[in-house]
């Protein structure tokens, strides 16, 4: 954080640096931790005595990332409504098996909001399609709603939701440190920033809630009045929060330096987690799915099509590339994500 500041001898020297930050405390002390409660719960439930990681978090990060990538690829590459629905259902199933369905809710809300917007607007503004259901002349605007535009709107919404949830799966179902490990292979510093951000964001959020409660407790009305009054009442809190964040940043930087960061060449702890059969099944499934998708793209059966033309959606379900894709993505779900570490 600062330049070297020592003197070669006993005479004092001045050196530029930030002042020592004031120390503040942010530790919840009057509640057993969620982790401890989880550990106790596991101990009661089984003999392992540790809060086991589930689903993708228990798998080798590379295998898990490859599988999630294959799911996202599939969501983008298929156009058939039934196929899109099947991929979405699979993503949701994997989230559920990983126990992260609730954690993905914020992402699902965004996906559904945008998807619904598209599903509603598309039939109104895109009158393409063969089977006209309804027409209306609204002054300068002529609206034609067709079966195809309705279906397309719904398919677009499903596809968007599947893609967003596939990325959410990567974020919420993989161990953050595993994500960091994967990213470290490319850039350690970027990975470290990601890790620090994921760790400190909940801390910042707790700080904000605590500061707001402290202000309420001294008579500051934060929750009543007009929107403008409420915003004005919260402005001083931002300053306090910013100060706290800067203090934390300085302290974390000092702790990192004290623990040797920035010194000799770093090593990388390759997690002792071995390649279990389940990891191999997951990686093999991801590879097979990627090959099936590539085959579908090359043969023209699988392609991202803005306005797909589909005669009979059920017929495509018998395509060989699709069958291989389904087997490749579904088989590991039972074997690799069923909760067993091995």
């Amino acid at each position: 954080m600062s330049a070297p500041t020592t003197s070669p001898g006993p005479d004092p020297v001045e050196a530029p640096a930030a002042p020592a930050a004031g120390r503040t405390a942010v530790v919840p002390v009057d509640a057993p931790s969620r982790a401890a409660r989880a550990a106790v719960s596991v101990r009661r439930d089984g003999p392992r005595g540790a809060p086991a990681t589930r689903g993708l978090a228990a798998r080798r990060p590379a295998a898990a990332a490859a599988y999630v990538g294959a799911l996202a690829f599939a969501a983008l590459a298929v156009s058939n409504p039934i196929q899109v629905a099947a991929v979405l259902a699979l993503v949701l199933t994997v989230l559920a098996l990983c126990g992260r369905l609730r954690a993905s809710l914020p992402y699902a809300r965004v996906a559904l909001a945008v998807g619904l917007f598209l599903a509603v607007l598309n039939p109104l503004f895109s009158g393409g399609g063969l089977d006209v259901l309804w027409t209306a002349d609204l002054g300068p605007l002529s609206v034609t709603v067709t079966t195809q535009s309705l279906v397309y709107g719904v398919v677009t919404a499903m596809r968007l939701t599947a893609v967003i949830l596939a990325f959410a799966l990567f974020t919420v179902a993989l161990d953050p440190d595993d994500q960091l490990g994967l990213m470290s292979a490319v850039s350690f510093r970027s990975g470290l920033v990601l890790s620090l951000a994921s760790r400190l964001f909940p801390v910042l959020s707790r700080d904000a809630a605590r500061i707001a409660d402290a202000q309420r407790s001294r008579g500051v009305e934060l929750d009543r009045g007009t929107r403008r009054q409420r915003v004005a009442a919260r402005v001083p809190l931002l300053r306090s929060l910013l100060t706290r964040s800067l203090e934390r940043a300085v302290d974390v930087a000092a702790a990192m330096e004290a623990r040797g960061y920035g010194g000799a060449r770093r090593s990388r702890w390759v997690h002792r987690r071995p390649w279990w059969a389940a990891d191999m099944a997951l990686a093999a499934g991801a590879a097979a799915a990627a090959l099936a998708l590539l085959a579908g793209l090359v043969t023209g059966h699988a392609a991202y099509d803005f306005f797909p033309l589909i005669d009979d959606p059920w017929v495509q379900l018998l395509d060989m590339w699709w069958l291989v894709l389904v087997v490749a993505l579904v088989l590991p779900v039972g074997t690799a994500l069923g909760g067993s570490r091995r």
């Binding site: 500041t5 930030a18 002042p19």
Partner: peptide, 16 residues
Amino acid sequence: LNGLVPHFYGGTFAGR
């Protein structure tokens, strides 16, 4: 004792 003073915090340091 671990060099954070003075390397990290800066300031005026005399002695050893």
